Structures are given as structure tokens and as C-alpha cells.
Simulated assay, not measured.
Amino acid sequence: MPTYDYQCEAHGGFSALRSIAQRDAACLCPACGLPAQRVLVTAPSFADMPHETRFAHATNERSRHEPVLASRKHGPGCSCCSSKPSRTTAVGKDGSKAFPTKRPWMISH
């Protein structure tokens, strides 16, 4: 459950753990019991955040609506996109697979 900030007119600010459905409703002040309105104490600060963190936030926000598909170029030695045949799997002309470096009782699916 998230924590929200509230401001009591008599006793000042306090935080309360509430469900998202209750976030905008007034919360009772723990000191006096009077209803207190929700306030936004701090605004998000992207200006003084490290470049890597800011870039990660931007990437996550962008991918929420436009997911980026992984490219097939993972670099040298990548087993999924390299043109070299795999050392652990031998594929026959009929499509059957064999695993010459594995245990002989292992079966391909």
C-alpha cells in the first residue's frame, strides 16, 4: 500500500498508508482526529538526477506505449544470431536434432 502526505491545519503534515482508492479522501489527523486534506509535498525532480537514471525513466515511460522490439544483432559470439552453427546442437537435413556434446540419453523436444 502506498504512503500519501496530508496536511492538518492544527498539527502540520503527516503521512498515512492508504489504498489507492482512498488517496484523495480526507484522512484523520493522528494527533487531533480532524480530517486533513491530501497535499503534494515534493515534486518529482528530474533535473538533478543522474543521467543514467533520467535515461532509464525516459526509456520506461516510452516503452509503456511503444515497446521496442529487441534487434537480432546482439554482438559477436551471440548464439541466437551468429551465422556459425551451434557447437552443442547438430541439425540434420531432415530437421532432426542431435546433441553431440551432451549426454546421450537426453532427448530433444
Rank of each mutant, 00 (worst) to 15 (best):
C80H: 09
M49R: 08
Q37Y: 07
S79W: 15
H51V: 13
F55K: 14
C27Q: 15
E52Y: 06
S83R: 14
D24F: 13
T53Q: 07
C32V: 08
L40T: 12
C27F: 04
G77H: 10
P50Q: 05
K73S: 08
T88P: 00
C32P: 01
R87S: 13
T53C: 00
P30G: 11
A90R: 07
S63W: 07
H74M: 09
M49V: 13
A70D: 05
R64L: 15
A56Y: 01
S82N: 09
P50N: 10
D48T: 10
L34D: 12
K93H: 01
C27H: 09
E52N: 06
R62Q: 10
K93Y: 00
G92M: 15
A26Y: 06
L69Y: 00
H74N: 08
A47Y: 04
E66A: 13
R38D: 05
P76N: 11
E61L: 14
V91T: 15
H57T: 01
Q22E: 14
P35H: 05
V41C: 02
K93S: 06
N60V: 07
P50C: 04
M49G: 03
K84C: 03
E61H: 02
C80W: 13
M49T: 10
S82W: 04
H57C: 14
A43F: 07
H65P: 00
E61F: 04
K73L: 12
A25P: 01
C32T: 05
P30R: 08
V68G: 08
D24G: 04
R64G: 13
E66T: 14
P44L: 02
G77E: 06
R23P: 05
V41F: 03
R54S: 09
C78V: 02
P44H: 05
T88E: 11
S45C: 05
P44Q: 06
A70F: 02
S82D: 12
R64K: 15
T59V: 10
C78R: 01
A90W: 07
P85R: 14
T88D: 09
N60S: 08
P50R: 03
L28Y: 09
E52T: 13
K84Q: 09
R23N: 13
D48L: 05
T88Y: 11
V91H: 03
P85V: 08
T89D: 01
V41R: 09
P50T: 06
C81D: 14
G75E: 01
A36F: 00
D48I: 03
A58F: 07
A43W: 09
D24K: 06
S79Y: 15
V41T: 07
A31C: 02
R54K: 11
V91K: 10
T42R: 09
K84M: 10
Q22V: 00
S45G: 13
A47H: 10
A43P: 00
T59Q: 13
A58S: 12
Q22I: 00
A47D: 14
C29K: 02
A25I: 02
R72M: 12
C27A: 15
R23Y: 11
A90K: 10
R72V: 05
S63I: 02
V68M: 11
S63Q: 12
G33A: 08
K93T: 06
C32N: 01
